[in-house]
């Protein structure tokens, strides 16, 4: 009944790039809190980076997400500590709904990377210089294809292949198609109950009956 959710394997992502420069870009910038007064994630895409993209009277400002040449881009290239701040999954949801399928950057905040993984979005890292070169290349080649090989931990662009790093657990989860963990973890329900029973603070009446 519950196990029929298809989880695609994400071993490879390709598309054109979009550079988002700056360190410490927090989730309040990715999706301002006032757009979170919603009970579904639908439609969040248009609010990605809203306050960086639009001015006082909603007139567009200079921002890659507003540029015509990047409208079909799906691979975002960012700098360090991207996605710091709140745990709001609204942030990667907004990026995904705008069209982002993978993010390459210097480093990512932990909860943000975890949230991306839960959506099947790889967060791939490389050093500062490599990232800056890639951002410059994307600027020059907005139509240039970038291939992110999650399994081999490489990124290929402009005829060149560079090494990148994908966190081990993330790589396995994406490549094996086990990044959506609900069904997997549910199948361990009896072990979960055992763990709960062994914990001194969990009372028996707090553990539901096994009959499922």
């Amino acid at each position: 009944m519950s196990d029929d959710v298809e989880i695609p394997e994400v071993d490879y992502v390709s598309g054109t790039g979009i550079p988002i420069r700056g360190n410490d870009i927090d989730t309040d910038q990715i999706i301002p809190a006032r757009f979170m007064k919603v009970v579904t994630f639908d439609g969040l895409g248009e609010f990605a980076f809203f306050d960086l993209r639009f001015g006082e009277n909603d007139e567009p400002k200079e921002h890659p997400f507003n540029e015509q040449r990047f409208q079909d881009s799906s691979i975002m290239v960012v700098n360090s500590n991207f996605g710091c701040g709140s745990s709001r999954e609204h942030a990667p949801q907004a990026l995904m709904r705008w069209g982002i399928d993978a993010i390459i950057g210097e480093s990512f905040a932990a909860i943000f990377a975890g949230n991306c993984l839960a959506l099947g979005i790889p967060t791939v890292t490389a050093d500062t210089e490599t990232i800056q070169e890639l951002q410059a290349w994307v600027d020059e080649n907005p139509d240039g294809e970038i291939d992110v090989d999650v399994e081999a931990e490489t990124v290929t662009y402009g005829g060149e292949t560079i090494d990148v790093t994908v966190d081990d657990a993330q790589r396995k989860a994406l490549v094996d198609g086990v990044w959506d963990t609900t069904a997997l973890m549910k199948s361990n329900a009896s072990e979960v109950r055992k763990t709960a029973q062994d914990l001194p603070y969990v009372r028996d009446d707090q553990i539901p009956d096994a009959a499922d």
Partner: peptide, 12 residues
């Protein structure tokens, strides 16, 4: 609870 195939741990 166990170690998942991804190498992550499943925590109660």
């Amino acid at each position: 609870v166990t170690t998942l195939p991804t190498g992550q741990d499943q925590l109660f």
